[in-house]
Simulated assay, not measured.
Amino acid sequence: MMARDASDLAHRLGRQAEAVCREYLSSGRREGRYWMVGDVRNTPGRSMFVRLIGPESGKGAAGKWTDAATGEHGDLLDVIRESCGLVDFRDVADEARRFLSLPNSEPQPTRDSGRKAPAPTGSPLAAKRLFSMAQPIAGTLAESYLRKRGITVLHGAGSLRFHPRCYYRPDEHSPTETWPAMIASVTDLADRITGAHRTWLSLDGGDKAPIDTPRRAMGDLLGHAVRFGVAHDVIAAGEGIETILSLRCVLPHMPMVAALSAAHLAAILFPATLRRLYIVRDDDPAGDGARDNLIERANAAGIEAIVLSPVLGDFNEDLRTFGIGTLRAAVRQQLAPEDVARFLVLAA
């Protein structure tokens, strides 16, 4: 029989509680009547326990879990949501049906399980929840991916996180998939999360995932950005996260923002204290257009605009092709003299 609501799905999952845990909480292990793991996001540890044996509903039901460290509790739908990084209930339900080998339908979420109501797909709230589900990138496949791209300076990168099983659907007619992903928070000038950007990764972290669109953004993006450092009088602004992180390898103390596209770069909002803007240009027609628009806007606001141009397509390509020493020398020639001493890290 096709599942029609969240309660039915949770009951069905509870009947296969151990199999669900082995699939979505693989960092844990069975101990007696429980599955022990670090938390609902599949972190190694022992503070969270899932009941593997018990009645279908009520106190002590199979599939119910509690995290003794945080007081969090829920059912196996919550496990799927958190461990996969899903924020839309439809996606959680579809993933549960995939696991249970059930056909898809359009169930409505119930409100008696203690779970949050699903956020609208693609909304700022959905972005905020997705970012909160992810973990710091240190020691993860996201860090491996960035280092593979030549990016070794990752201090002050709190806007980046990692999710080991982030939900991916090519289109509304295709089956769901899960891939590791680097998650970036998009914030406004007051540091409120308005969106999120996902870069799905290969299973070994060596490259982007072999999917049609390995990068996608969600939420309210216009005017906002992925931020590194706290902006004052000087910032650098560019399109891509990896472009900006490459520049931070030689200018680690300069606040920077990644707007995620040329159109959004042209529309970034300026902090009230900004006096000099470095425009990190990509070498393509869209990058030229963003550069021209930003120069005009900055000049109108009384902000000095200086363009930083790569030798090749972007600064990550320069870093990987020529190395950090050549990148440092090229950037130094384009900086305002006072910013060389203030921001540029010389070779050791």
Results as ranks from 00 to 15, higher is better:
H232S: 14
E106C: 11
Q108H: 13
I193S: 03
R81D: 08
H264R: 12
E296A: 13
G74M: 08
L274W: 00
I193L: 09
Y145L: 04
P337Y: 07
R12N: 01
L201N: 10
R297F: 05
E143L: 02
I183L: 11
S246N: 07
R46P: 06
I183F: 02
G114A: 01
R81Q: 14
H253N: 14
S132Q: 11
L125I: 12
S144A: 15
P180D: 11
L308R: 05
Y278T: 03
H11D: 13
Q334H: 05
P210V: 08
A17Y: 02
G302M: 03
A181K: 11
G54K: 00
S123T: 08
I151W: 06
S132C: 08
T121P: 09
G219A: 07
R29Y: 07
R169K: 13
D188R: 03
L274R: 00
V153Y: 11
A259T: 12
R215T: 11
F343R: 10
F315Q: 07
F99T: 08
V50I: 09
G302D: 13
D207I: 12
D191C: 10
I193H: 03
L9K: 00
R33E: 14
T326G: 03
D75N: 14
L308D: 01
T66Y: 10
K208E: 08
E82G: 00
A126T: 08
S7G: 14
F89T: 09
A126D: 00
A286V: 03
R97G: 03
L346D: 14
W179P: 01
D204M: 08
G32F: 01
D284Y: 06
A298Q: 05
I295G: 00
H173P: 00
Q16R: 15
R275L: 01
A341F: 05
G219M: 03
V311M: 10
L77M: 13
T66L: 15
L312W: 06
N293D: 13
I324V: 15
T326N: 11
H232T: 15
S57F: 04
R97P: 01
P210M: 06
R161E: 01
R291Y: 06
P124W: 00
Q135T: 15
R169A: 06
E95H: 08
S123M: 04
K116N: 10
P164C: 03
G150L: 10
T110N: 13
P175Y: 04
P164M: 02
E239K: 07
H163P: 05
I244D: 00
L102E: 15
S105G: 15
R165E: 02
M48V: 11
C84Y: 01
D94A: 14
V37E: 00
S309P: 02
R328W: 03
L222G: 10
A127S: 14
T326Q: 14
G58A: 09
A336Q: 11
G32H: 09
S144P: 07
A184I: 10
L146H: 01
R169I: 08
I211C: 08
L277E: 04
